[in-house]
Simulated scan of single mutants.
Amino acid sequence: MPELRAGDQQWSVAFGSNLLDALNAARLRVPYSCRAGSCHACLVRCVRGEPQDALPEALDARKREQGWRLACQCRVVDDLDVEIFDPKRDGSPARISGADWLSPSVLRLRLEPERPLRYRAGQHLVLWTASGIARPYSLASVPGNDAALEFHIDCSKPGAFADVARTLMPGDVIRLGELRGGALHYDPDWQTRPLWLLAAGTGLGPLWGILREALNAGHQGPIWVVHVAREHYFADALETLAQQHSQIQVALVNTQEAQTALAGVRLASRQTVALVCGSPASVELFSKRLFIAGLPRGQVLADVFLEKG
């Protein structure tokens, strides 16, 4: 049986054991969210030995050369020594400059990192609380446009991170973990093409950033923004942009009416690019309606928000 070492603990594990499960079974509290290699919350660094990695492409070459692996995707097949990601050692501090409620259940966090962060609208960033809870969230801010990093946090249900987020105040410090690219982005080559942005709930966050990035880039084509939600928390901001830019149309759709409202979607141009974001069910609904409308699958970019515990 392989020997696994982490910190001052060493123990035997069954051959082929999932590394994340083995570490958490030893009460080492490695955080995770998706278990699919997407969220990057379960980073560990291999200092001796090599696990069997089912998804090596999930990390860039520089990270892998440094020994970092996603524990959820690794199996222990030989003796292995690992270091667990320590936000105080490996993360970057950021001070909360704003924590305001956009609706009764949506919290907007604004963070000012101690060191400048290079990012693009729509990317994911892992946030670490002082108590060691880590979750990935999508950036709603635009580099060069917003002074602070902005995140829209869904606090409608109990959850380890959401419960802490409700108590955060300006001046508090949290840590920033892995920054990674999501599926959503704006390409300047789309400048004259119709752009559809379909969001459910706080899926509006990254699309809000991408919408403003497109406008900053001088997007000329029509832009259609659809927000499906129980609470349209950014309605005024969207309507203001629509008044300022004649090519923007906004549709605010109640959750219960989404099926009916989207059934009438018609494609005016096969050059349309659609970005969709939200829960698995909402992304599936959006994607299905776009496919029925005749939009090629390669022109639909989707980002799924998994429920964060």
Rank of each mutant, 00 (worst) to 15 (best):
Arg75Ala: 09
Glu112Val: 13
Val76Asp: 10
Gly98Trp: 12
Ile248Lys: 11
Leu125Ala: 04
Tyr119Thr: 02
Gly171Phe: 14
Arg270Glu: 15
Ala217Arg: 09
Leu80Trp: 09
Ala61Thr: 10
Leu117Gln: 14
Ser105Phe: 03
Leu80Lys: 11
Val225Arg: 03
Gly7Leu: 04
Thr272Trp: 01
Ser97Lys: 08
Ser287Met: 01
Ser105Asp: 15
Gly203Arg: 01
Asp78Cys: 13
Arg212Pro: 04
Glu150Phe: 04
Leu211Gly: 02
Glu257Asn: 13
Gly181Thr: 06
Leu197Arg: 06
Asp81Ala: 15
Gly294Ala: 00
Pro188Asn: 03
Met169Leu: 15
Val30Ile: 03
Glu239Asn: 15
Pro296Thr: 05
Gln73Gly: 13
Trp11Gln: 00
Ala199Leu: 00
Trp11Asp: 06
Tyr137Lys: 09
Gly37Gln: 05
Val30Lys: 09
Leu184Arg: 11
His232Glu: 02
Ser12Leu: 07
Leu111Ser: 06
Asp146Arg: 05
Arg89Thr: 01
Gly294Leu: 00
Cys277Ile: 02
Gly7Thr: 00
Pro296Arg: 00
Cys42Trp: 08
Ala237Arg: 11
Gln73Ser: 13
Glu307Tyr: 10
Asp8Tyr: 02
Arg120Asn: 07
Tyr233Ala: 00
Ala134Leu: 11
Tyr119Trp: 14
Gly298Val: 03
Leu275Tyr: 10
Phe234Ser: 06
Arg135Thr: 01
Ala22Lys: 11
Gln259Ala: 13
Ala263Ile: 02
Arg35Pro: 12
Gly144Gln: 11
Ala268Met: 03
Gly209Ile: 00
Phe291Pro: 01
Thr192His: 13
Ala281Ile: 00
Gln299Cys: 00
Pro194Ile: 08
Pro104Val: 00
Ala6Pro: 15
Gly294Tyr: 00
Ile210Asp: 14
Val276Cys: 15
Leu211Val: 01
Arg266Ser: 15
Arg297His: 11
Leu20Phe: 11
Ala274Tyr: 05
Gln123Pro: 11
Pro194Phe: 07
Val276Ser: 07
Leu197Met: 15
Ala26Arg: 12
Gly159Gln: 09
Ile96Asp: 12
Gly309Trp: 14
Ala25Trp: 04
Leu241Asn: 02
Tyr186Gly: 14
Leu306Lys: 10
Thr202Asn: 07
Arg118Lys: 10
Leu285Ser: 00
Gly49Leu: 01
His185Val: 01
Leu215Lys: 04
Ser287Lys: 04
Pro87Gly: 01
Arg75Asn: 13
Ala251Asn: 04
Ile223Phe: 06
Val82Trp: 13
Arg270Asn: 15
